[in-house]
Amino acid sequence: MEYFLQQLINGLTLGSIYGLIAIGYTMVYGIIGMINFAHGDVFMVGGFIALIAFLALVAIGVSAIPLALFLVLLIAMGLTALYGWTVERFAYRPLRHSFRLAPLISAIGMSIVLQNYVQIVQGARVKPLPPLVEGGHTLIASEDFAVQLSNVQIIVVTTTLLLLAIFSWLVARTRLGRDMRACEQDLKMASLVGINIDRTISLTFVIGASLAAVAGIMYLLYYGVVDFHIGFVAGVKAFTAAVLGGIGSLPGAVLGGLLIGLIETFWSAYFSIEYKDVAAFSVLIIVLIFLPSGILGRPEVEKV
């Protein structure tokens, strides 16, 4: 029981990170029907920016951890958003009216470019960050096992929930969210009611990238290391999460992320750690056989 609870906590933490990345995939897919394969690498860039920002802040003497965390959050979100914007502006927008596969190929290219760029600039070795947030709480202690909830896990989960709440409000209640949903449903019609669709698409990438940056910070805090290659696996997992939850659906992305995180964690805990990815992807396949549009996805309705 204690062991189960511990794995549940670990799984939810990991799932939150996947969920944050998955939102970026699902939003971009919703609005322009394209899989942004470079999104995982934008997450990785976010992690690196966070690492550099931490070290820079420590170097100039900002030693209060909460303040440093907050500043890093702002810096990483801002700069990563700039990366997201740039990727869309230069790699996808010129191909908007091209055939469907062109931006997809461009996205794969962009992913390779970002990976190699970071590899060259930062080196290929794993970069560690000394643990900043230490300690935790023992929830239940029995004779042979104590359930630990570390402070990092609390930060990861609460930040994720907070951002999701803000973000859901933004999409459901504000002008920006309405514009995005209108673009999602009928891009051309949206422009006819006066919405600047290029701007709205850019903003979607900016929001997706800044959430990926948050995921990058959380990853860095949780694992304490980043390297140029983390974006690939995390990206594929988050993409899986988005598809599992129903691509195009925001709550679906989060739900999918949590599920992938839980499956992976429980499989590693009870069966074998080597095959955790196999388990996650097998569940994806099974779900897609029975629910082709994902758990919360809307089924495609044929227009008559």
Partner: peptide
Amino acid sequence: FPGMTALENLVV
């Protein structure tokens, strides 16, 4: 915009 409410269609 079929997936938005009638009111939202007018507000957007």
